[in-house]
Amino acid sequence: MPYAGWSDFSFDGIGTRWEISTPEPLTSAVRQLLLDVVEDYDRSYSRFRNDAVIARLGQDAGSITLPVGAADLERLFRTLYRLSGGAMTPLIGKSLEQLGYGADYALRPLGGPLPAPRWEDALRWDGREISASEPVVLDIGAAGKGQLVDLVAEALLSAGIPGFVVDASGDMLHRGVQPLRVALEHPYDPSRAIGVVELRDRALCASAANRRAWGDGLHHVLDGSTGRPVETVVATWTMAATAIEADALATALFMVEPDVLEDEFDFSWLKVYSDGHAAFSAGFEGTLFS
């Protein structure tokens, strides 16, 4: 619970733990509203559900229609696909399945790394409409959880709740007057922190190779151009106005130099490399422990 005396509403959704903290307890109607927002998103975008809308593209070539927010995902992914030279792509799903991270959570590789299909060859994405020329496994996880954090926040605001903290297992959005001090989890020891930051009226998102890791050097942050896990970076944190941008940029930092991203996005960042050294932007206000 971020502040003394606040109330927490906790639940599981999209495979992660959610904690919604508010000054007063949420009514049953608002709680149900939040659960519905999360369920609707999961039913549209989850690659782990056979009944999800995007699952149809994994079965056969064809077209689907997604919710309004799909246009925001398209713009963001298209920009990061270009800036990363194809390394960050929503077509990474089959590459993840190849290394064992599929709907059955087998965590046993099916073979060697498999590069993702080229966007320009396999996919036509125009706002809410997506068409695939071949069966593809879309995975919008690099930005999806952040977008859902934003949607949950919008639901709280629409219910007349101006101050809150939405925490989706470390991807956070804060609204309110009093800043929130947040510990930054050590990438090799979840029981420790490498520093703290103050969060106020912004989103804070993280990506770490240890969060979903299995086997020898296998984890969920893949370079789409090779299908291999990124080895040079172990953890990133970003702060931005929205959680969808913070979430996507935290993943992009594994593959793109920060100055390239800063040319097109307004955000602050911290990046920890596999050799142990860290780099951070001037706007990432906080304290790193020695």
Rank of each mutant, 00 (worst) to 15 (best):
R128I: 03
S191T: 14
G62E: 05
P23S: 09
A71Y: 04
G195Q: 12
D51G: 11
V230C: 14
G111E: 00
A235E: 04
L73A: 13
T226C: 08
L123I: 06
P67Q: 06
L57C: 01
L270I: 03
E129H: 12
P25R: 02
G5F: 12
L270N: 00
S46V: 05
L222E: 01
A235K: 09
N50A: 15
P258H: 02
S7E: 08
A209S: 15
R108Y: 03
A168E: 02
V221D: 13
K271S: 03
F267R: 05
F9W: 07
P187V: 04
A143C: 10
Y105V: 03
W269K: 01
L218P: 04
R78A: 15
P179V: 05
A87W: 01
D189G: 06
V152D: 01
V177C: 10
Q147F: 14
L33S: 13
C205H: 05
S191D: 12
D263I: 04
D51P: 13
S225A: 15
W237N: 05
F48G: 09
H186G: 10
E24S: 08
V68S: 13
A29C: 04
L222A: 03
D40R: 15
L253M: 09
A155F: 06
P258S: 14
R43D: 11
L249P: 06
R75T: 09
H174Y: 01
A252P: 12
A203T: 03
S28G: 07
R43P: 02
G276F: 00
G227M: 07
G176L: 00
L148F: 07
Y273E: 15
S268F: 00
C205E: 01
A29P: 00
D60W: 12
A70I: 09
L110Q: 13
R192A: 11
